[in-house]
């Protein structure tokens, strides 16, 4: 019993170190992505246009690990710190995208987004601007965020699906440029791979 205490302390220490590592890596990726998206605008033809697009690309990149973890673990294993941190970082960049896309390009005229992009693209974008931050907020406030149950579980699944589909439609279906298409395909491939691994996990367990 006396020997178990230091072991538990060591275990907590390891968990804290792992958490710190997750925070450090995610925050660094977020910072680098944010800086590249913003400073890249200085060398691009149109700073606002570039920033609006690049922030969406970085959001998609940051959301990809979270979506992959989610697909592989949801309902099976705790989602974990990596999911929560990447999921949150992805949303932060989506908020940055909203600032440049809606604020700079559309001068906060939401109706014009529907007018120019069509309902099929505009509606999901606005929808995830509501769903995603709510899901992130729940992930940081609910105790059962890692192993959701009941209605919250359905909510998490819906939020994950909504974000993935929005990225897929925007980046792949309505590909505006090569960068978007590549990023969309990479994200879709990562999610697909996670799904395959999940299937293999189940078959292995059986």
């Amino acid at each position: 019993m006396a020997a178990a205490a230091p072991q538990a302390i060591r275990s907590i220490g390891r968990r804290e170190a792992a958490r710190l590592e997750a925070v450090s890596v995610t925050l660094l990726l977020l910072a680098v992505g944010f800086a590249l998206a913003m400073f890249g605008g200085l060398v691009a033809g149109d700073a606002d246009f570039f920033r609006a697009h690049a922030s969406a690309w970085v959001s998609a990149l940051l959301a990809t690990p979270a979506l992959s973890v989610f697909v592989r673990r949801f309902g099976r294993a705790p989602l974990g710190d990596w999911w929560r941190l990447f999921w949150s970082a992805g949303w932060v960049m989506m908020a940055v995208h909203l600032w440049w896309g809606l604020g700079a390009l559309h001068q906060w005229d939401a109706a014009s987004v529907f007018q120019r992009q069509g309902f099929l693209v505009a509606a999901p974008i606005f929808l995830i601007q509501a769903i995603w931050p709510l899901d992130v907020a729940l992930a940081w406030t609910r105790r059962d965020w890692a192993r959701a149950a009941g209605g919250y579980r359905w909510w998490q699944a819906l939020a994950g699906l909504a974000v993935f589909l929005t990225f897929f439609v925007s980046l792949v279906v309505f590909r505006n440029d090569l960068e978007s298409l590549v990023l969309g395909l990479v994200q879709a491939a990562a999610v697909l791979l996670a799904g395959l691994l999940r299937k293999l996990d189940r078959e292995g367990a059986a």
Binding site: A17, L20, V23, S24, L28, L30, V32, A35, M38, F39
Partner: peptide, 17 residues
């Protein structure tokens, strides 16, 4: 230390941007 340094660096980069 490395992780803490990473966090500080990230925060500085965000602040600079």
């Amino acid at each position: 230390i490395v992780n803490a340094g990473g966090i500080v660096l990230a925060l500085l980069l965000i602040a600079a941007t």
